[in-house]
């Protein structure tokens, strides 16, 4: 039996047929749609490398069956920049040295975008660390990551004021 789903990924519609029910959203993004920016780390929801936004909320793509998100609006790391202009969170990670090897970085950045949208953390580094605890960085770039989230939040608030 073939199962069909439709996903809107970074604004583009994708119709995907699945051979069986097992693929996760992560598998479909990487292997079927070809967006390999979203990383497979632990594949068990513990490392956060696969973080994407589903209908605007950050989740672990490895713990979502693709079938359960049929029809959803997905944002991955490939959907953040506008042409050559980086998203403010991406710019902040570059400016603040928020990575070393880079493997966890797409998940860190997507998680940070989600965290800022949730609006709970404010400018308290302790709350940002707590809110980012679902993303592990084995290079331990945590000080840079926390600084990047603070910096990105300030950039986004500035641009809202400018455009506001």
């Amino acid at each position: 039996m073939t199962l069909s789903i439709t996903l809107v990924v970074n604004g583009d519609r994708h119709d995907v047929s699945l051979q069986d029910a097992r693929p996760t959203l992560l598998d479909v993004l990487r292997d079927r749609i070809g967006l390999t920016g979203t990383k497979k780390g632990c594949d068990r929801g513990q490392c956060g490398a696969c973080t994407v936004l589903v209908d605007g909320r950050r989740v672990n793509a490895c713990l979502s069956l693709a079938l359960t998100v049929d029809g959803a609006d997905i944002t991955t790391i490939e959907g953040l920049a506008t042409g050559d202009d980086l998203h403010p969170v991406q710019s902040a990670f570059v400016a603040c040295d928020g990575f070393q090897c880079g493997y966890c970085t797409p998940g860190q950045i997507m998680s940070a975008v989600g965290l800022i949208a949730e609006g709970d953390a404010g400018t308290d580094p302790e709350r940002i660390r707590e809110g980012m605890s679902g993303n592990i960085c084995r290079c331990a770039a945590y000080p840079g990551i926390t600084a990047a989230v603070l910096d990105a939040q300030a950039r986004l608030a500035d641009s809202e004021r400018t455009n506001g």
């Binding site: 950050r58 713990l63 998680s111 809110g131 605890s133």
Partner: peptide, 9 residues
């Protein structure tokens, strides 16, 4: 409990 990503799901 868990992480922000898990709590969202």
């Amino acid at each position: 409990g868990a992480s922000a990503q898990v709590r969202n799901a």
